[in-house]
Design a protein around this nucleic acid. Structure first.
Length: 548
RNA sequence: GGCCCGUUGGUGAAGUGGCUUAACACACAUGCCUUUCACGCAUGCAUUCAUGGGUUCAAAUCCCGUACGGGUCACCA
């Protein structure tokens, strides 16, 4: 029985015409690099893969290349309902544009499809059949129990575990023996026949890790599973070749299979792509580093940032600092620079796992929001509250101009105020500016040094009766606060106060604080003068009158 | 256990043989400014680059050992 006949027996459903596919998927006519994001359809993207997709997209964009989305759904056990849509939604949320590939649960675009592996079954089988004809692949009838048995023997004898060399039983079967077993109905899978030598060392270059040295692969790994679908390794070689991927960027859990992958490309006659293996994002827990886990760590899910209301731009800025450590410095020098203007560099990717620094992300977010215009803050907040705080959303919509005035306090200046870390934080900072909340919320007046309520009332009513005038400019207003201070025995001159604090009951700041707390209940707020002006005379009076 | 990789401050890191008395950023601390807070400004925060040895006139940077950490060893990706 010839190999050709064997191939027909084993894989009867397709022919072995690989030229058809080589011609169908022509080499791309692009100068830039071609990258892909290739997740399993698990329904969402977590921080690590978001970083990967971000880098893949950036690398392609920087060079006018192509970034495509491929769905790796060869494991039916992993299947999640609407799993593809979830991934696309997360990518869209972060504006990571897909040039090509899967664009929705049912649609694809591009010339190199299908981009969903389960739809490429025939392609893989064609190549597998071709390998069988060439004597480079063979069927394996070993049961899981038999494999387990060999593994135990190998462990006992302290030799390398795996299906290789003399342990590769089915490799030695003759074509006629195979025919007999197939006809007897014995189930089989297809294995790759490795011609590697474990004692030979090979060097493989990785764009992130540098030159890596491994023993050559000699494992006869399975390429077609019993369900007829390919394993990751086989699909990787076929797809990335046929889709003409130039740069494979993926997690570094794959580095150890690099010798296998390179061998697969070589024996299939494909030119291997360039590889960039990314270290996982780590998290520190109990003094130990571990991989950020989507099960244990809420911050691993991208939805976490959405709920918190961190601007997507801020998340991307953070991802960029993680991806390329020199970005931060660049951004400092080019504060108005866009992410697109920064050239991504593979060499600048950290080769060891970075700790996920939420504090830093928050800091970036805070700075980012502080540089937004009042209109941008308003629009973003309206958008965010529309899904996460309906009540606040309505208040904002009904008071657009007013809300913008509030957001603008200490904003349009060289060094704007930085107190909104994320959108969900804004209400906590300025709720008292909205009458709806001020009347509704329980009021905890944070009086500071002066706590005697009679004194407080006295000062406040005097302020309203004798000094309050919303038409005052800032200096006039503050001078009046000083006069008020003097009147009650508080120093209006800070220097004089510091020289002789015992001569006074306190100083202007104590008086300002009383007014501040009376109007807002809080001891820490943005500029008081502006608050008074925005609140307006009536509300100032009402708020002062209700103090008891 | 085998095979790979890594280890610079509380954190992210720059650094690839002399320019390093180790950049920058976050965090933290103190002080100044100030009507509060924030901002801003100033100062402090690794005598040392996991550790032991070696090469060299010279090492965080090169070599070897050790420790610790990570990855991988599926008909999962």
């Amino acid at each position: 029985m010839t190999n050709k006949e064997l191939a027909d027996l084993l894989i009867p459903d397709v022919d072995s015409n690989i030229d058809y596919y080589e011609k169908l998927y022509k080499p791309r006519n692009v100068e830039g690099i071609v990258t892909r994001f290739a997740p399993s359809p698990t329904g969402f993207v977590h921080m690590g893969s978001l970083l990967a997709s971000f880098i893949e997209n950036k690398a392609a964009k920087d060079t006018n290349g192509v970034f495509y989305l491929r769905i790796e759904d060869t494991d039916q056990k992993r299947e999640v309902e609407n799993g593809v849509q979830g991934i696309i939604d997360d990518l869209n949320y972060f504006n990571i544009d897909i040039d090509e590939g899967v664009v929705s649960e049912t649609e694809e675009k591009g010339e190199y499809g299908p981009y969903t592996q389960s739809k490429r079954k025939n392609i893989y089988r064609t190549y597998a059949k071709h390998l069988i004809e060439e004597g480079l692949a063979y069927p394996c009838f070993c049961s899981p129990e038999e494999i387990e048995e060999t593994r135990m023997i190998q462990e006992k004898r302290k030799v390398r575990i795996g299906y290789y060399g003399r342990f590769a039983k089915c490799r030695r079967l003759t074509n006629d023996e195979i025919k007999e077993m197939v006809e007897a109905g014995k189930p089989y899978i297809i294995r790759f026949k490795s011609h590697g030598d474990y004692d030979t060392k090979i060097k493989i270059n990785d764009l992130v890790k540098g030159t890596l040295e491994f023993p050559e692969n000699d494992m006869d790994i399975v390429i077609i599973k019993s369900d007829g679908l390919p394993t990751y390794h086989f699909a990787h070689a076929i797809d990335d070749h046929l889709m003409r991927t130039t740069h494979v960027i993926r997690g570094d859990e794959w580095v150890s299979s690099l010798p296998l992958h390179v061998q697969l490309f070589e024996t299939l006659g494909f030119e291997p792509p360039k590889y960039a293996h990314l270290s996982p994002i780590m998290k520190e827990e109990d003094g130990k580093k571990r991989k950020l886990s989507k099960r244990k760590d809420p911050e691993a899910a991208v939805s976490y940032y959405n709920e918190l209301g961190i601007p997507i731009e801020a998340v991307k800025l953070y991802l960029m600092t993680v991806a390329n450590s020199n970005f931060e410095e660049w951004y400092l020098k080019n504060p108005d620079g866009k992410l697109e203007d920064f050239k991504f560099d593979f060499k600048k990717i950290s080769s060891s796992g970075a700790l996920f620094d939420v504090e830093k992300l928050f800091n970036i977010s805070k700075n980012y929001i502080s540089r937004l215009s009042k209109d941008e803050v308003y629009d973003s907040l309206v958008k965010w509250t529309a899904t996460f705080d309906k009540e606040f959303n309505e208040i904002l919509l009904n008071n657009e101009e007013y809300a913008k005035r509030v957001f603008n306090i200490e904003r349009e200046q060289a060094k704007p105020r930085k107190d909104y870390v994320y959108y969900s934080d804004i209400k906590n900072q300025i709720w008292y500016m909205f009458e709806e909340y001020f009347t509704k919320f329980e009021k905890n007046y944070e009086w500071q040094k002066i706590t005697d309520i009679t004194e407080i009332k006295n000062i406040l009513t005097t302020y309203v009766d004798e000094y309050l005038d919303v038409n005052d400019d800032k200096d006039t207003w503050f001078n009046k606060v000083k006069q008020l201070a003097d009147k009650f025995g508080y120093a209006s001159d800070m220097k004089a106060y510091k020289e002789n604090p015992d001569a006074y009951k306190g100083n202007v700041s104590d008086i300002a604080t009383i007014i501040r707390v009376a109007l807002t209940t809080k001891s820490q707020t943005p500029d008081l003068y502006e608050i008074i002006n925005i609140l307006g005379i009536d509300r100032v009076k009402t708020r002062i009158n209700i103090i008891k």
